[in-house]
Design a protein around this nucleic acid. Structure first.
Length: 588
RNA sequence: GUGCCUGUAGCUCAGCAGGAUAGAGCAACGGCCUUCUAAGCCGUUGGCCGGACGUUCGAAUCGUCUCAGGCACGCCA
């Protein structure tokens, strides 16, 4: 199966060959001047130097060859050497119908279902999700779904922060507050009575412990010691940690589910623990790791490094593991379990150096072969209007659940204003408001390019107009309404038999270009490209909706063709929304 | 200090495997609801693409320098 761009590139490439030039010059792109043509090829200008001919001469000779092919309605060489192409409408309609009949041909798939592990989310247990967690979760989820659509076997791993100093801090504070708890007794080996801790309690003691450790040297040493003991299997701590995990994970699951984010694996740093001792031993035995200032490190600097590259610490001076250790062991585990073609990390940009170090260490020590791509896909920070990392008015970080509540109640208000869904039950209205609010939130985030910082503007998320999630939902809801009424009237959608308007043609060309857009989006690991494409299709669909009478169309053949076209647009938009993991209501 | 990222319309951002007249959304102004949902559609206003030099037939896009902002730089994750 070939996309339309590929088909045209091949035809134009052949024409270049026939005219006596290199095939590679025949690259065709969508036109950047839709007023002049649909597709363009700039190869003549690129070839001018190698062939010592003027670009327009080359373009002319290629255009002459192309004119013989009847799939083109017009081929024109224009100065300085553009080849402007308009294709035959029948060819567009045929291509569209082929996609309808063989929907698997809409998107070009990768061969062989290669495995991709996607590491995203990365929340710490015992800490509530805040707005900063939004990006990793929904960008990672979108790239994962995109990869799946493109034919990859995808595995999403949340990679919980559940094994570091933060747990030691919680243990320490708990011990301070509950000195007599059997969980905290060193010589007590169990059994343990269930500990009914509340999430709110955990959310309370963590910041407290964190604060204390910064102010109190001794407290910090105690927390480090607790971390070490946990990592070395002290029974009471392990039992306590399991309780913390149970409470924390069930809350995280609920939160992520709300956002439409689903992980295949709920592994954490702790799950790599079983690989760590052997891994470290091997590092030492093979001479990769050595002691430095009391810590065990691996040198990863290279001669051609522009910047100083510090070594990776795999054992701290106190003997406990650090995130580099668990990250390395996690790579080991993933290679062992899945042997993936690539492992992608959707993590805050600020961790770039850390991952560069870890990747180098993984390669150097042979944990991962050159066949597996390790890639750090950093995302930008969510800033407030002042350009600084987003904070609430009182200086704290806004909780994700609060943000969701705000956006959803905004959507509900908007629904009341526009009197939509007033005939529905309260529950149904709430359900729709939730979809709209979350769509606004997710789309508003996803439309921003992954790697860039962006300004978090609550008002923008609440506007629901223009380039927003609700705009796209609204477009789809209107299309659904037409199709629903058509069904009520007993109309059936027929074959798309011709193009009735310019908008239709523009939309069809866009639909035929979907595969290329998706691939570009995946190759850049940038869901914003999918979001942008969804918007531009929706925008055209709204124009079409405004200009075209469908249900009132008296010519049955035309009406049925238009109906089928509505189904197609809806379907293509739905694919986009599925990738972005945004739910679409029936009415709004 | 060194390295990385970012400077495009009043605001928020696309465009950056070089291409023809730099695009959206918001805001402002003006039109369009007896006809499939006006969360919509159409139009107007708005730009020395941070600056300089260079490569090129051609630069927002590539290179060098420079200014401004952000981030990172061994025992937190």
């Amino acid at each position: 199966m070939e996309t339309i761009i590929e088909k045209l590139t091949k035809i134009v490439g052949d024409a270049f060959v026939k005219a006596g030039f290199d095939e590679s010059l025949g690259r065709v792109t969508l036109s950047n001047r839709p007023d002049l043509c649909e597709f363009q090829c700039n190869g003549a200008m690129m070839g001018a130097k190698t062939y010592h001919k003027s670009p327009i001469d080359i373009a002319n000779s290629v255009a002459e060859v192309l004119k013989e092919n009847k799939i083109f309605a017009s081929v024109e060489a224009v100065p300085p050497g553009f080849i402007n192409i308009i294709i035959n409408q029948d060819f567009v309609v045929d291509s569209i119908n082929e996609i309808i009949e063989h929907s698997e041909n809409l998107i070009k798939k990768v061969e062989g279902k290669p495995k991709v592990v996607i590491d995203y989310g990365g929340p710490n247990v015992a800490k509530p999700l805040h707005v900063g967690h939004l990006r990793s979760a929904i960008i990672g989820e979108a790239v994962k779904r995109l990869a799946k659509v493109l034919g990859y076997d995808t595995i999403g791993d949340i990679h919980l922060g559940d094994w570091g100093l933060q747990i030691g801090l919680i243990i320490t504070e708990f011990a301070v507050q509950n000195p007599d708890s059997p969980y905290m007794k060193e010589d007590y080996l169990g059994p343990y009575e269930p500990l009914n801790i509340e999430l709110s309690y955990l959310n309370e003691i963590y910041p407290l412990a964190s604060k204390k450790s910064k102010e109190d040297e001794e407290y910090r040493a105690r927390a480090k010691r607790a971390t070490f003991d946990l990592q070395n299997g002290r029974p009471g701590y392990i039992a306590f940690w399991k309780e913390v995990m149970r409470v924390s994970v069930s809350d995280l699951k609920k939160n992520y589910e709300n956002l439409g984010v689903n992980f295949e694996l709920w592994y954490g740093e702790s799950d790599s623990q079983k690989y760590i001792p052997d891994m470290i031993e091997k590092f030492v035995k093979d001479g990769f790791a050595h002691e430095d200032q009391g810590a065990l490190v691996i040198d990863v600097a290279k001669e051609d490094d522009k910047a100083p590259m510090p070594p990776v610490i795999v054992k701290k001076t106190d003997g406990s593991d650090i995130y580099a250790t668990t990250d390395l062991a996690t790579i080991l585990q993933r290679v062992k379990d899945y042997d993936p073609e690539m492992i992608l990390y959707f993590v805050d940009n600020r961790q770039g150096l850390h991952f560069e170090q870890v990747f180098r260490a993984a390669r150097k020590t042979g944990i991962v072969s050159d066949d597996t791509l390790l890639e750090f896909d950093g995302f930008g920070t969510m800033n407030g209007k002042d350009g600084k990392p987003y904070k609430t008015r009182d200086g704290g970080v806004m909780r994700l659940s609060d943000l969701i509540d705000t956006v959803v109640s905004g959507a509900l208000e908007k629904m009341k204003e526009s009197k939509t869904g007033s005939d529905l039950s309260k529950d149904e209205q709430d359900e729709i408001a939730k979809m709209i609010g979350i769509a606004a939130l997710k789309f508003g985030d996803l439309i921003n390019h992954r790697a860039k910082d962006y300004i978090f503007d609550l008002d923008k998320f609440l506007s629901f107009e223009g380039k927003t999630g609700p705009y796209i939902l609204y477009t789809m809801v209107r299309l659904k309404a037409i199709l629903r009424k058509a069904k009520e009237n007993g109309y059936v959608s027929g074959k798309i038999n011709k193009i009735y308007s310019d908008v239709e043609k523009d939309i069809m060309l866009k639909i035929l270009n979907t595969s290329d857009v998706f691939w570009q989006s995946f190759n850049d690991r940038a869901p914003s490209i999918v979001a942008e494409n969804a918007y531009s299709i929706a925008s055209l669909a709204n124009k079409f909706y405004y200009e075209t009478k469908i249900l009132a169309e008296e010519n049955e053949e035309k009406r049925n063709s238009l109906l089928h076209f509505c189904e197609l647009m809806l379907k293509v938009l739905q694919i986009h929304m599925d990738i972005l993991s945004i739910k679409v209501p029936e009415v709004m």
